[in-house]
C-alpha cells in the first residue's frame, strides 16, 4: 500500500511569533523553522505502517519554495522513501494547496493520505478535508488511532465529547491529532541516507491549475494584552477577592 504524506514548513513551535511593525503580516525573518508538529505525527504514522508491513512506500510532498526541501529531507530521514516539492514562491490558500495535492494523488494513486489536522501558523484545519472532497475520498480527521483492515481503515477520532470511531473505504484521507503517536528523532545515519533519497521538484505552474488567491490578508495585529493582575497571599484572600471584587463566585 502506497502512503502519501503532505507536510508543511512552519515556524518552530517553541518560537514566539512577532507581528511586523507595518501590520502587514508576521515577521519570519531569521526565524527557526520546522516540520509542522501535526505533519511530523503524520510522517511517523506512515513509517509505523511501513514497519508493520502495511505500507510499502511512503511519499512525502510539500508545497513551497526551495527552503521546504529541508523539511522534506527531515521526513526522508524519519523513514519516507521519496519526496516531491511542488515549487512556488506564493503563499497559497488551503483550497489551492488541496488542488495541487489532488494532482499528486491522481499521479501516485496512494491508498492512504495522512496529513496533519492543522498547521500551527495559519491554524486553518482545512487541507485534509478539502483534499478528501476533491478526490471524493472518505475522511477520518483528528485521528488518535488508525487501523488498516483489508479494504477499509478504522479511524478513531478525537471529538468534543470523547472518541468516535469511523470505518472508511480505501483509498481514504486521515488527519492526525496529538495522541496518535510520538514521533521519533532521526538518527545520524538516517539523516545521511536521506540526502541520497529521490526528491523531485515540480513547478506549481506546470499543474494547469488556476492558483488565484481566494482571500486577501488585510492586516495582522498583535492580540490585545491582558491587564496584569495582582498576587494574593493566601487562599482566604483569593476566595474573598473572587466573591467581593470579581463577583464570579458566591
Amino acid at each position: 500500500m502506497k502512503v502519501l504524506v503532505p507536510i508543511k514548513r512552519v515556524i518552530d513551535y517553541n518560537v514566539k511569533v512577532r507581528v511586523k511593525a507595518d501590520n502587514s503580516d508576521v515577521d519570519l525573518t531569521n526565524t527557526k523553522m520546522a516540520i509542522n508538529p501535526f505533519c511530523e505525527i503524520a510522517v511517523e504514522e506512515a513509517v509505523r505502517l511501513k514497519e508493520a508491513g502495511t505500507a510499502t512506500e511512503i511519499i512525502v510532498v510539500s508545497v513551497g519554495d526551495k527552503t521546504c526541501q529541508e523539511q522534506l529531507r527531515t521526513a526522508l530521514a524519519l523513514g519516507a522513501d521519496r519526496a516531491i516539492q511542488i515549487e512556488t514562491d506564493e503563499s497559497l490558500d488551503a483550497l489551492n494547496i488541496a488542488k495541487l495535492l489532488q494532482k499528486i494523488v491522481e499521479e501516485e494513486q496512494p491508498q492512504l493520505v495522512i496529513l496533519g489536522k492543522q498547521s500551527i501558523d495559519s491554524d486553518n484545519n482545512q487541507t485534509g478535508q478539502m483534499l478528501a472532497a476533491l478526490t471524493g475520498m472518505a475522511q477520518g480527521t483528528f485521528a488518535s488511532e488508525v487501523v488498516v483492515e483489508g479494504d477499509k481503515v478504522n479511524v478513531t477520532r478525537e471529538v468534543d465529547g470523547g472518541l468516535q470511531t469511523v470505518a472508511l473505504t480505501l483509498p481514504a484521507i486521515v488527519t492526525t491529532d496529538l495522541r496518535l503517536n510520538e514521533p521519533r528523532y532521526a538518527s545520524l545515519p538516517n539523516i545521511m541516507k536521506a540526502k541520497r533519497k529521490p526528491l523531485d521538484v515540480k513547478p506549481a505552474a506546470d499543474f494547469g491549475i488556476n492558483l488565484t488567491a481566494r482571500t486577501s490578508l488585510l492586516k495582522v495585529t498583535p492580540p490585545a494584552e491582558r491587564q496584569a493582575g495582582i498576587m494574593v497571599g493566601s487562599i482566604d484572600e483569593l476566595v474573598e477577592k473572587l466573591k467581593t471584587e470579581a463577583k464570579v463566585i458566591s
Binding site: V17, D123, N125, T215, S216, V220, P223
Partner: peptide
C-alpha cells in the same frame, strides 16, 4: 471557495477577523 476558519469578529459581509499562530497574531481577512 475558500473557507475562513475560526472567526472571532465580523467586520463586514466579506471581511472577518481570526486568530493565527495560536492567537499570537490576529489577522483580518477578506
Amino acid at each position: 471557495v475558500a473557507q475562513i476558519s475560526d472567526i472571532i469578529d465580523v467586520e463586514s459581509a466579506d471581511t472577518f477577523v481570526r486568530p493565527i499562530y495560536a492567537g499570537n497574531a490576529i489577522a483580518t481577512v477578506k
